[in-house]
Simulated scan of single mutants.
Amino acid sequence: MRLTVVMATYNGARYLPEQLDSLVRQTRLPDQVVVSDDHSTDATWEVLEAFAHRAPFAVRLVRNTGDKGYVHNFLNGLKEADGDIIFLSDQDDVWLKDKLSTVQAAMEDAHASLAVHAARVVDQDLNPLGRLLPRIPRSATAPAGDLGDGPLKSFPLGFCLAFRRTAAVWALPRLQDYPETFRFYFGHEIPLYWASKALGPTVYLAQPLALYRRHGMNASRGMEPPSATQALIQGADDYAQFAHHQQIRADFAAWLRQQNAPNPHERIDAFLESMERISKARSESMEYRAALYREPNRLRRLQGVLRLAWQGGYGSRSRGALGLKSLAKDVASLMNSPRRP
């Protein structure tokens, strides 16, 4: 089985050598490394050329003639990937030496189409900051077509993903005219994440397999989820924003399905149709929840909670509902607190 690492670079000469060295130190070396550079103006290209000459595996360097932005830079690199399993790599992290071997073994054991692993967050000098991201409290395997995120409690960051090439072959032609609004919310990760989840089982690995460097100039925003304390004090404005996000999620799933592109796949289309449906349902529930938190009368607030519960609004999250934890939180908050913005 061939493994390809796809890296996107842009003015990354300061930290890039450490990440490239970590690829060479893997206990299971990649068969191919593809690097797409977004017209860097520092020494990045010279670092990459030197690496290509000394690497003990095939290296394909692609240099953009103009700035594409990090999403299309990754997509540009994916076009050159020929591995059976593809790993995405940022330019400024460091991979632990068993990352490729651990992920490959886990995917083969589960016959998985996708793997997501945790990483240890570090500062610019690789000093641990005491947390893991993405948050994956326990290792687990989700079945093909599962609409939830299993134990994953945060955004599936690209450098923690590995997926079958089939997902890239499906996604690339559909993202040629990727609207900026969707790019902002979903990046290059979510289309590949969704397609891979539709095609086969997903393996979630709680084991940190990389050092996630946060230095203030990262292209990604990190996307840490709210803490338990923050979740308890969320109010109407928060839920209105969540409703907006869920509607955009539904719109994106619909947009992907509507793209007239080659390599159609029934499983992916069915997954996207279900994702659109549950995201719309969750958006409507969140809008209703926001209205409840704006209601000044406690009795009417309680009646609204009961009505939402009767209509199934606190049922399974996998079906677009809010879940039982939300019911408990709403009853406690709406009965014991004054109206909050």
Rank of each mutant, 00 (worst) to 15 (best):
V6I: 11
A8G: 15
N11I: 14
L16G: 02
L23T: 00
Q26F: 11
Q26T: 07
P30F: 00
V33M: 06
V34N: 04
T44D: 01
E46P: 00
E46L: 05
L48H: 00
E49C: 05
A52G: 08
A52H: 02
H53K: 09
V62R: 11
R63V: 04
V71A: 06
N73M: 02
L75N: 12
K79G: 10
D82Y: 06
D84R: 09
D90E: 11
V94W: 08
K97C: 04
Q104P: 06
A112R: 14
V116I: 15
R120V: 04
V121E: 04
L126I: 01
P128H: 09
R135I: 14
D149T: 07
L161F: 11
F163Q: 02
V169K: 11
Y185P: 11
E189W: 03
A195T: 05
A206P: 05
Y212P: 08
R213Y: 12
H215Q: 12
M223F: 15
E224D: 03
E224A: 13
P225V: 15
P225I: 14
S227H: 05
Q247V: 12
D251W: 01
A254P: 10
P262D: 00
N263W: 09
D269R: 07
L272S: 01
E273W: 07
E276Q: 14
S283T: 04
A290R: 02
Y293D: 03
P296K: 03
N297A: 06
G304Y: 00
W310N: 10
Q311S: 08
Y314I: 00
S316A: 03
R319Q: 13
R319P: 05
L324M: 14
K325V: 10
D330A: 10
S333I: 07
S337C: 10
P338L: 01
R339E: 03
R340P: 04
